[in-house]
Design a protein around this nucleic acid. Structure first.
Lengths: 215, 215, 215, 215
DNA sequence: GATGAATGAGCATTCATTCAT
DNA sequence: CATGAATGAATGCTCATTCAT
């Protein structure tokens, strides 16, 4: 009547701390998938534990609270953008940087962590964690705005309001999580191509925009 | 700590059925605001009742279930788009229709019902209601796609994939709910102007798009 | 959306008090049927009211409480036995009286009130009403016991313990409510015949019982 | 007025699964007593929990729902009859088998589970469980009918309709739950004797029944 | 008489979290 | 590490009853 046997994560031969890190990560991954799909509050810790044939209580060896899980997912997803090498040392025209940004950002979005970042609310977090996440999001926001601004300077991007434009562009991208399923006909590569195409159309200078754009 | 005095909604002098309708509407409005802000599951019926100094149970005189409240909000929001006169008898070029569509759609989004439509999941709904909502959303989706297609035919919109483009555009617009607050510096009018500007840039034909499409 | 028209009990032309009595009776009848079928607590006043296209609150013009309805049903059912003419002035041998008793008792059982009497618990009643019902039941119990005793005296019934025998016999009869449905193949007449047959077998003197029973 | 000290069931030194089984059983026992006395719907899980100084929620470690508790009680009670060794390999004349059956059946009835079986309705059960219980009850019913039929064949029981007779007999027996209290003057042994006596009288052949059935 | 509105009390169930083993 | 046991706080929902109209 119980799920006795079937031992939780058959131990791979690894040292203690490494194992701990791996298990933590596995839980985070599963949780982010679940949160993205069903929502944070609709996902119980029991649900997550069940995926690993673990007991609910065991999760508390890895995390202090459900909130912490949500927090770490967000931190992880944010880092995957802000810590990206190619992002930090940006090269090329604003237009080229934008392409690179979207390429990277969509990669994040179609990953479990990224989807969770975009789909779940961080209001449940306590103030300190909340603020940290907001700061991280703001950093990503800044990144795009800066790229747009640089593009405007080098003439590769039309003269537009960077703040509003970034907001609309994040919307267009983030919403991908609501309709894109990686098992569908559109490959991630193709998705990225289309996203870039849409974005470029929206921000590239048009002939009537800048009557004077010389080399 | 108790709900002492302060009688629940002092009755205005109106006949009963009219009062009933008004109260129902008021609850729907309050609920959509709460659902949009805190989420459907995080909003208890007690929360909503408290806003009107009403007892939890009284809500059941107006609605059969929490689910029904969510359902009616979605129906209401969808109707505000699909039932719109100006939408049904569409006139003008695709480009002009697009402008009209966005104008109307953003109006909906900055309304409580619209925000709820975009921000809350309908998975909690039972199958029949769920299907009805999905159908409604699809109708809105079709509307935009049709407009894009007509614009492509009359040359006012660039040759693009209507499906993907509509998806990105809805993303850009829907996301407004996440960052726009009507009390801020941007007026709804201005917001709509910017949304239209962004959208037009993304879909208007550019010189290099159609090297040849003049008569 | 409401059950507006379809006026509650189209008024027959009768004087006030008579109408009142008739309506009261109709409610009692419907309630006893519902209580017997679904149970007292599983039947809400709204359920009963709905049968008459009445509002829940209207029932309070006829009864002071749900409890009172239950009480009156029991009183009514008990009276249908204890007030029976043929019971009060009993004639004939014990055996003949027993036959008459069962005939009458089964009539009650297959009636809505009787079924409710046997199938619903009176514990929800307040002490005074409870006691009155218990007394009524006891009176019926006494009736049967007396009949048995008289039968033993006149030799038409075997020498047995009247108390226990009455208990078993009431069980056999009352249980009819659990299995008999008047729409089935067995007619009420036939049911009564079988009940009487069973009961007589159980109490009639047998040759070995009373080696000395002379005319 | 609060559930202060008094630790919930002090643990006896037993392995966990065994303890689990025992506690489960204890809850079932208490529940069946409560259901039989006050009814299924009138008994709240809090009531049952309180008996063990347990929190309401703790019961959900042992049962998935209140319904499951009711179901298990019925299964348990039915099994106590149908799984009985002496019932399965039946020996002796129909008359002797009947005596054995009643002996066993009354044992069940004066047990908490049996009383609950007879006194509570299974309508609250979901279809699958409901059907299983109905099947179980039918099996018990068949048992008695078969015994009666066999008795008719071997001449130890009068020629009667087995179906109706079984129905009356079950009524007589089941009703015991309504009037018998094991703390009273009648011992279980004596109760069984009287039940058997009553039943035999009702079904034993009488001289006038079968004028001729000897070899 | 009849009814819509309103309510307080209650109930089954869920869940994050703690703790002893 | 891992887990079964236990709990307090919520939550959606029901219902008998009251009351103003």
């Amino acid at each position: 009547m119980a799920t006795e046997s079937e031992a939780p994560w058959r131990n791979v031969g690894l040292d203690r701390t490494e194992q701990h890190r791996l298990k933590r990560y596995a839980v985070l991954k599963a949780a982010s998938r679940a949160f993205a799909q069903r929502g944070y509050f609709q996902t119980s810790l029991a649900d997550i534990a069940k995926e690993f044939n673990l007991n609910k209580a065991t999760l508390y060896h890895y995390f202090n609270s459900k909130e912490e899980i949500l927090f770490e997912i967000h931190v992880h997803a944010i880092a995957s953008i802000t810590d990206d090498e190619s992002m930090r040392g940006r090269v090329g025209s604003g237009r080229e940087q934008l392409i690179a940004f979207i390429d990277r950002y969509v990669d994040m979005l179609i990953d479990d962590f990224g989807a969770c970042l975009v789909l779940t609310d961080i209001k449940p977090l306590e103030k300190a964690s909340y603020d940290q996440c907001v700061a991280g999001r703001r950093r990503i926001d800044s990144l795009l705005r800066t790229i747009l601004r640089e593009g405007m300077e080098d003439g590769s991007i039309a003269t537009i309001d960077p703040k509003t434009t970034a907001a609309f562009m994040f919307g267009a991208l983030n919403w991908i999580c609501h309709w894109y399923h990686s098992e569908g006909e559109i490959t991630p590569q193709e998705l990225k191509r289309r996203a870039i195409d849409f974005a470029l159309r929206a921000v590239e200078p048009r002939s009537q925009d800048t009557p004077a754009r010389q080399p």
